[in-house]
Simulated assay, not measured.
Amino acid sequence: MLVAGGITACASPARGVLAPVAAPSPDTAKVDILVATTRAPTTQKGVFFSGERGSDLSLANVVVSIPPNRQPGTIQWPRRLPGDPERSFVTTAVNPIKIGDIRTWYRSHAVSDRRVLIFVHGFNTRFEDSVFRFAQIVHDSRAEVTPVLFSWPSRGALLDYNYDRESTNFSRSELVYVIQQAVKSPDVSEITIVGHSMGSWPVMEALRDISMQNKRISPKITDVILASPDLDIDVFRKQLTDIGQERPHISIFVSANDRALRLSRLISGQVTRVGGVDLTDVAYKAQLEKATGITVYDLTQLRDGDSLNHTQFATSPEVVRLFGERLLRGQSLSDADPNASGNFGATAIEAGQTIGTVTGAALSAPIRIFESAVRR
């Protein structure tokens, strides 16, 4: 049972936390999110969408207020309802959007360089968990992006692993639609897609479908980031083959100490999960060194973030900062950029070397990087 806890999300302690509150004070931060979901709507106050499967795609504009004076990488859940904007994450607006108005939303929420970030959450994630986690990532990474959350039907229960996994298949076509609408929008110039854990499966399947339907993937989709991907490593190889060589650059966060993916491997026929690859294994390292357009970040030695080593890309203050300063701008952590605000203390980091320090902050342990010679 202790191991089973490895794939639980950072669950909220109360239900109904998404009920909008009055406008917070000026010292709070705001994250304005487009939510696209295949979850079933619910009339339960402050919940909006359940973990069951809906009959169609639903869209909503959700505005999250984030309290001041908080530790990056954390979510402050309301202890009681309504939440106090000075102390906890709350929403100030949850407004439905018609499917036909999605491009209008992009136009009204475009940032200066028209970059969009699409995030797909993982297993055992209730709707409110996905909303607050994504808001935390966007805020803490300090990335200038238009944020889009794709939330598929997860019941938020440990024993519903198979239900959740089938729900990702159930939602694949709708994710394709959301991605394609961003591609078609004249108010979007670049798209980064992030899939966490089980959410990496629909991301890869959506890209595979787009490639096979259109014979290509739009160059607007510049980067795909797979964080602790709960992907069968053999299936992942086949997905890459089907997508083809003309694909976005793929960054993968892995950890040999990921307790969640150890359990996933156990219940999935003992097949290695991509996010749990041990890069000290010579065979895996040899495959990565020959890969094209893939960079792997090994977080095994990190000691901050979550105790399960499964959400470090979002919960480690150091990693989430790197995530925003580099990866969400389409840059590898090893890219040389003397004009960047954060200098990583190296001009070019070869495959297998490490990043140990960042200006103004020292990593608790190095991040090992395995990067192919060709990024795309």
Rank of each mutant, 00 (worst) to 15 (best):
I367C: 04
T357W: 10
G360V: 05
R375V: 12
P338W: 15
F323N: 05
A340Q: 10
E350H: 14
L363M: 01
G342A: 07
R368S: 12
S334C: 12
L328P: 10
R321H: 08
T315Y: 00
E350R: 10
R375Q: 14
P338R: 09
F323V: 06
Q331N: 15
E371P: 10
S364T: 03
A348G: 12
T347P: 15
I355W: 09
A340L: 11
A351Q: 06
V358Y: 02
L363R: 01
L333D: 00
L333V: 03
G324A: 09
E325G: 10
P366R: 07
S332F: 13
E371S: 15
I369P: 07
L328R: 06
N339W: 15
A348F: 07
L333T: 02
L322W: 01
I355K: 06
V358M: 04
A361L: 03
V320F: 00
I355A: 08
N343T: 09
T354A: 10
D335C: 08
T357K: 06
E318R: 01
R321A: 06
A351P: 15
V320P: 00
L322D: 02
E371K: 12
L322Q: 01
I367K: 03
P366Y: 15
V320I: 02
P366W: 09
V319L: 00
I369H: 10
R375M: 15
S341G: 10
T359C: 14
S332W: 05
G324K: 12
A373S: 08
V358W: 02
R375T: 10
V374Y: 07
V319G: 00
Q331C: 06
D335V: 05
A373V: 12
S372P: 06
R368Y: 06
S334N: 09
T315M: 00
L322H: 01
V374H: 10
R329M: 15
G330Q: 09
G345T: 05
T315R: 00
L327M: 08
V319K: 01
R375L: 08
S372T: 09
S334F: 14
L328I: 13
R329D: 09
V320W: 00
A346N: 15
G324H: 11
S341A: 11
L333W: 07
R321T: 11
I355T: 05
E318A: 02
P317T: 01
R326T: 03
T354H: 14
G324M: 13
